[in-house]
Simulated assay, not measured.
Amino acid sequence: MEPNIFTLPSKTTIRQPVEAPKTAAQKAARATAEEFEAVFLADILKNMSVGLDTDGPFGGGHAEEMYKGLLNEQIANSISRNGGIGLSDAVYREILKTQEAGQ
């Protein structure tokens, strides 16, 4: 049976395992990749909550807007540290390729 545009590839082809960093440069690259993913996820979470009403007895105000951003950042950091969405793995591999090409 020939695959069509509606057939999803298996999980192994979507997310390839990445070996644990060993050197200081690899650890720095991994931390940078996870930070990039966290910033990306924080922006996604911010955009998801743009149209939400915050009226009610405990809603609204300047403080809520400030803390909503902080909460989004913490949620994004937590997601990224606990496996993320796979973006940090791809970024990490690209950083390593770039470092190897420069040596």
Rank of each mutant, 00 (worst) to 15 (best):
F40L: 11
I44M: 14
A90G: 09
G56F: 02
N82M: 07
L45T: 01
P17N: 06
P21L: 01
H62Y: 15
R30S: 10
Q99I: 11
K11Y: 11
P21G: 04
L45V: 08
A20Y: 07
G51M: 09
L71G: 06
P57A: 10
Y92V: 00
D89A: 10
A25Y: 02
G86R: 03
A29K: 05
S88L: 04
G69S: 07
L87S: 02
T7L: 02
L87G: 05
S49H: 14
F36G: 01
I75A: 07
K22D: 01
A28E: 10
K11Q: 14
D55W: 07
V50A: 09
G69N: 03
S80A: 13
L71S: 12
A76Q: 01
I75G: 01
G59W: 06
E35Y: 12
V39H: 10
P9S: 15
A101M: 10
T32F: 11
A24H: 08
A29Y: 05
K27Y: 02
I14E: 15
K22N: 03
R30V: 07
P9C: 11
V50K: 14
P9H: 14
I44V: 15
T13A: 14
K46I: 03
M1I: 00
T23W: 01
E19P: 00
D89H: 05
F36I: 00
P17K: 06
A25H: 09
I85D: 09
R93K: 14
T13R: 12
T98H: 04
M66A: 09
T13N: 11
Y67D: 03
A29C: 01
L45Q: 00
I5P: 05
K27M: 02
D89E: 11
T98N: 08
R93C: 09
A29D: 06
T32A: 15
E19I: 02
S49M: 14
T98M: 07
A76S: 01
F36M: 03
G60C: 04
S80M: 03
M48K: 12
A63W: 00
K11W: 13
E94W: 04
L52Y: 15
E65W: 00
D55N: 11
A38H: 03
S49L: 13
N72Y: 12
A101Q: 12
D53I: 01
N47S: 12
G86V: 01
D43K: 15
A24I: 06
F58G: 11
V91T: 13
D89K: 06
G51V: 13
L70V: 13
A20E: 13
S88Y: 02
T54K: 15
E35N: 11
H62G: 02
A20W: 04
E37Q: 05
A25I: 00
E35V: 02
N82W: 00
R30L: 06
P21W: 01
Q16C: 05
R15M: 09
K22I: 01
T54H: 11
D89T: 00
I95A: 06
E2M: 11
I5G: 13
T13P: 02
A20F: 03
G56D: 06
E19G: 05
N77D: 10
Q74E: 14
I75F: 10
A29Q: 08
E65Y: 05
S78K: 13
T23S: 11
G61Q: 09
K11C: 05
E94S: 15
A63R: 04
V91Y: 02
